[in-house]
């Protein structure tokens, strides 16, 4: 097991190196630079800025220096928000995205699992159709529609919750639900599918024959096996929750990293783009590794010890 994890971690290095290189050159290929603005900057000021941010050196030299700095863990300064370095921005903003993502995942799992189990235990009943229609709606409604809709109802009409912000617990409810809703819908459908397959198997019939309670059959025997597809989905879903929160962060004014990530690309904030891309790439690689480990734990056939 340890050897497997170590081998996977070693594989990260070339992957991240390729991502860093590609990102470095791709952002430079995009027209426009970080210091272009509607108001022209004088040539003298421009030359000073280029020199201070090391943009006046040949691209190959810039690349070499950037990679050397990167090996020392230095992402460089942010061009657009220079009051902090890229690493400082990530440290400041990522915990907020992480918190939002975690709440959204809790929302997604609690709604998704309950709906999926309810639907699968009475297939083709009204309960099943209701749960699955709900799931279909969740998948179809994009979060930039759902978010304002929830705000309209819970913040403007009922006045239960704040419109935006991230300073109190109440602020965090609507963004978490908005971000989690689509994933809840996927999880509900995956759970239903996985559970239906498992509940039709022989060992479940045996369990019923032994006179076990329905709840015990579903939870103990059904869920553990029926959850396999959900677990496989959780890796990319967790990564998606952390990276794909741009719209939700904008609608609810959540100062997370997702918004920073997208804005950096618009602003041609070179160092910020590469920094966030590498950071997210590492996260996704780690999540996939975790999923593989979780699947091995759930399903002995997928274990890697001997492999």
């Amino acid at each position: 097991m340890i050897a497997f994890v170590a081998r996977r971690l070693l594989q990260f290095i070339p992957v991240l190196f390729v991502i860093a290189t590609l990102t470095f050159f791709l952002v430079r290929l995009a027209p426009g630079g970080p210091f272009d603005s509607e108001r022209a900057v004088s040539p003298e000021v421009r030359a000073q800025l280029d020199a201070q941010y090391h943009l006046d050196a040949p691209l190959a030299v810039q690349y070499r220096d950037y990679m050397v700095a990167l090996l020392h863990g230095d992402f460089g300064p942010s061009f657009k928000n220079p009051s902090r370095s890229v690493s400082e921005w990530i440290v400041l903003r990522f915990p907020i995205s992480l918190e939002l993502g975690a709440y959204a995942l809790v929302v997604a799992l609690s709604i998704g699992l309950v709906a999926g189990v309810l639907a699968s235990t009475r297939p083709n009943s009204i309960r099943d159709h209701a749960a699955m229609s709900f799931a279909m709606a969740g998948i179809c409604i994009p979060n930039f529609v759902l978010g304002p809709l929830l705000v309209l109802v819970f913040a403007l009409w009922l006045r239960w919750l704040p419109v935006s912000g991230w300073d109190s617990a109440a602020c965090k409810v609507l963004p978490s639900i908005t971000l989690g809703a689509m994933y809840a819908a996927y999880i509900a459908r995956l759970t239903r599918g996985g559970m239906l397959e498992v509940l039709a198997q022989d060992f479940i019939r045996t369990a019923r024959a032994r006179g076990l309670s329905e709840a015990r059959i579903v939870v103990r025997h059904g869920l553990r096996n029926g959850l396999q597809p959900v677990v496989a989905f959780l890796g990319p879903a967790a990564a998606g929750l952390l990276t794909g929160s741009f719209a939700v962060e904008t609608i609810f004014r959540v100062p997370g990293l997702g918004r920073e990530f997208v804005q950096a690309a618009f602003n041609r904030d070179y160092t910020m783009i590469i920094g966030t891309v590498l950071f997210y790439a590492t996260l996704i690689l780690l999540f996939n590794l975790l999923v593989d480990l979780a699947q091995a734990w759930l399903d002995p056939r997928a274990r890697h010890d001997g492999a």
């Binding site: 913040a155 419109v163 904008t250 609608i251 609810f252 004014r253």
Partner: peptide
């Protein structure tokens, strides 16, 4: 307030 719609809603809710 980067999003104008959010800003308008914040005004409407008395923020």
């Amino acid at each position: 307030m980067e999003d104008l719609q959010t800003e308008e809603r914040s005004f409407r809710s008395g923020d």
